[in-house]
Computed example of a mutant assay.
Amino acid sequence: MFIGHLPAGYLLAKSPVFARASRTVFWGVLLGSVVPDLDMLWFYFVDQGSTHHHDYLTHRPILWAAVLLIGALFKAGFLIGLAAGGLLHLALDSIAGKVTWGWPFSEVSMTLVTVQATHDHWIKSFLSHWTFKVELVLVAVALIVFVRSNFKGRSE
């Protein structure tokens, strides 16, 4: 997923699940929806691309489950939001990218859809695949929700 993580995080943060949550939780969800991809910095600048970034700890669901558990134990809304956003990120990555959901108990990673190499660069292949249209829909829906929630009641 290229552009869909943050809009999906926004939609989750605005959903009925978090409707009564604080702004701290809201920002936790937004941050969590993108923070797993901070491992790309390590991937490019340290690891030189030798290990796929989905194999790093930030893309392991057990990390985000642990953050969720800690947040719940300490009633830390930001951590709960961060974990929810992180788990959402991994769920979205599972559509066309491999995520090892059973780690550390299993090394099996799965993907729902395989994006074939149809172009000379992998990014072009992803951008031309139908799954990218799902991301565009996420962006459009998030923009609609944003506009409606920010301008609701102003014209009355």
Rank of each mutant, 00 (worst) to 15 (best):
30 L>I: 12
81 G>Q: 09
46 V>K: 08
38 L>S: 13
87 L>Y: 00
68 L>A: 11
56 Y>C: 04
36 P>K: 04
49 G>Y: 02
25 V>P: 01
44 Y>R: 08
40 M>D: 11
24 T>F: 12
67 V>K: 04
63 L>P: 09
23 R>G: 08
48 Q>E: 14
27 W>Y: 15
38 L>D: 03
32 G>E: 10
40 M>E: 14
26 F>L: 15
88 L>F: 02
63 L>T: 02
73 L>C: 04
63 L>M: 12
19 A>S: 15
76 A>G: 05
86 G>M: 06
75 K>A: 11
88 L>K: 06
62 I>W: 03
53 H>L: 03
39 D>F: 04
77 G>A: 06
76 A>R: 12
40 M>Y: 11
66 A>N: 07
49 G>F: 09
77 G>M: 05
35 V>G: 07
72 A>Y: 00
67 V>A: 15
87 L>M: 09
31 L>N: 07
66 A>S: 13
28 G>Q: 02
33 S>C: 10
19 A>L: 04
48 Q>C: 01
67 V>Q: 12
39 D>V: 01
78 F>M: 06
40 M>V: 15
28 G>C: 12
56 Y>V: 04
52 H>Y: 10
20 R>H: 15
77 G>C: 02
44 Y>F: 12
47 D>G: 01
54 H>Y: 09
22 S>H: 09
78 F>G: 04
57 L>R: 09
56 Y>A: 01
81 G>Y: 09
33 S>F: 10
73 L>T: 11
53 H>F: 09
26 F>D: 02
59 H>K: 05
19 A>G: 07
37 D>A: 05
23 R>L: 13
43 F>V: 05
59 H>I: 00
56 Y>E: 06
58 T>D: 08
76 A>E: 13
87 L>E: 00
24 T>P: 06
72 A>V: 12
71 G>W: 04
66 A>Y: 01
21 A>V: 01
38 L>C: 01
54 H>C: 11
62 I>A: 04
19 A>E: 14
26 F>S: 12
75 K>F: 08
65 A>Y: 03
33 S>D: 07
35 V>D: 10
72 A>M: 14
64 W>E: 00
75 K>C: 14
53 H>M: 06
57 L>S: 00
50 S>M: 08
35 V>W: 12
